[in-house]
Design a protein around this nucleic acid. Structure first.
Lengths: 225, 225
DNA sequence: CTGCATCCGCTTCGATACTG
DNA sequence: CAGTATCGAAGCGGATGCAG
């Protein structure tokens, strides 16, 4: 019995997007249209047949569309349909609820730059860096670069390359997470060759203080705004 | 592999509430604290061991609490913890998205009065009944009674017994759904002994027109506000 | 009656291999 | 690149048993 068979809006929604991996596929497509391989990369651990199944049923449900892209791409592109876009508020609400759970996340978790952006926003929400001078940090992960910037005592995160960063960090995902959580000091990361860090001493020191400000606040699963 | 193992707030949320039945348990507890048996009744089709498993993991995750109620009840009562209440916005967002899917629901679906209330609200959202005279309908389902009322051209639905209803309908869930969808006329329902309907001729006629107003509007999965 | 635990057939999932 | 095919393992659904 795959369907719940209940005359209830929540049950009907879960009939469509309640299966394992389904909402995560929507998450990937929320950022940009994806090829099959892009999706597989963004969903580490998914079985390829499962991905194919999910894509078929999501298309049947009108949540996504599969179109054959013209020559520069020359492959099928999956993207959210209107009905899929309408799903984003629900996905964001769930993500917002899940954000505190990142605090006790395993450090073997997979990391993608695209996931890190909302995660960082949550980690540093309501954190007053206490430092009014602007600071720009380029965080070059393996898959994509991220730009962090401090303005008005608030930390901003977004995908993209920083033009003139005060600090540039190149490392893998778990290292970036450890640094941002304050579990791994910048100097220690350099010493253990886990990250390549460039930037003036003062800028690095300010980044260190920023991270410390984020780490000191209690991050338990109990907090939700 | 049960956990996704991704450093992503949505994935972390789904690690906790992404399993089958889990969000529906939250739905049940959102209405009122429940005993084990109440939950089983509200989740037709769930295997009893699954319910026990889910309750344990939800309690471990801090979403619900299990407390031994004092003598008048003398059994364990499950209720949402603070972290469970925080989940309701996400559940509502999903339900809102799923509401249009009720339009093509199977008529063999299980029906509970508690689920019908939000469903009716959705079915008649933005429906101007065009009738300013107040009307009160008692809808006595097998599990619980519902009160429908028309005020200012808007249909309101809530759990509870109507004191002085203009129309009283006693029937089972699927019949109620068929009537409210306009698929089964009041007279036909009476004729086939699927419902007992009491009330003045004029009140019944107004209810019929109200149902017709809800039924005529196109209800496809495409519409979402 | 409530609140599970156990057992069993079956479906789904996950991992790998393979193909157009 | 975009899937399909296969197979063992795990989870699910349903029935039953049983203690408090």
């Amino acid at each position: 019995m795959k369907q719940y068979g209940q005359f209830c809006p929540l049950a009907k929604a879960l009939d469509v997007v309640g299966d394992r991996w389904t909402l995560l596929i929507v998450r990937e497509l929320a950022v940009r249209p994806c090829r099959y391989t892009d999706l597989r990369d963004g969903l580490p651990g998914i079985a390829t047949n499962l991905l194919a199944d999910r894509l078929k049923s999501l298309e049947a449900a009108g949540v996504i569309t599969a179109e054959i892209a013209p020559p520069p791409v020359a492959t099928t592109l999956y993207r959210l349909a209107e009905r899929g876009e309408a799903l984003l508020p629900a996905a964001h609400a769930l993500a917002h609820w899940g954000a505190p759970l990142l605090a006790d996340a395993d450090d073997t978790d997979e990391v993608r730059a695209r996931w890190l952006v909302p995660a960082v926003r949550t980690m540093f929400a309501d954190v007053d860096v206490g430092d009014v001078e602007p600071l720009e940090v380029a965080l070059d992960l393996e898959d994509e670069p991220i730009k962090l910037s401090v303005e008005n005592g608030q930390l901003h995160a977004e995908l993209g390359t920083a033009r003139q960063p005060d600090v540039r960090i190149a490392c893998d995902g778990p290292t970036a997470v450890a640094i941002l959580r304050g579990q791994l000091h910048l100097d220690a990361a350099t010493r253990h060759s886990r990250a390549q860090i460039n930037g003036s001493r003062t800028a690095r020191a300010r980044l260190a203080r920023l991270v410390a400000a984020g780490a000191t606040r209690p991050q338990s699963a109990g907090e939700t705004s």
